[in-house]
């Protein structure tokens, strides 16, 4: 899951080196925290959240295969 988000994020942004994904695994669910450079936030979210929504949709499809739940959080850097 982590690698999937990493791959998608790195492919979409201008600064792939700034992409960070942190995974917190629970028993049946995981939380993925995605951090990108501030100026790339728009690329990850997309117009009306379309990109973010698409990433979550794909993530959910992949997770359902492994019988898990995955939550993607996009974290804004201070």
């Amino acid at each position: 899951m982590k690698e999937l988000v990493q791959y998608l994020a790195k492919s979409l942004v201008n600064n792939p080196d700034a992409v960070e994904v942190k995974e917190t695994q629970g028993e049946t669910a995981s939380v993925l925290e995605l951090k990108v450079a501030k100026e790339d936030l728009g690329r990850i979210i997309g117009k009306q959240g379309r990109t973010a929504k698409s990433i979550r949709t794909i993530l959910n499809a992949a997770a359902s295969r492994a019988n898990r739940k995955v939550v993607l959080e996009i974290v804004e850097e201070k």
Partner: peptide, 17 residues
């Protein structure tokens, strides 16, 4: 996916990338 939403999401991201 439901109503084609996963296929749609994949298509959108591939296009964007």
């Amino acid at each position: 996916g439901r109503k084609g939403q996963t296929l749609e999401a994949l298509q959108y991201l591939v296009t964007r990338i």
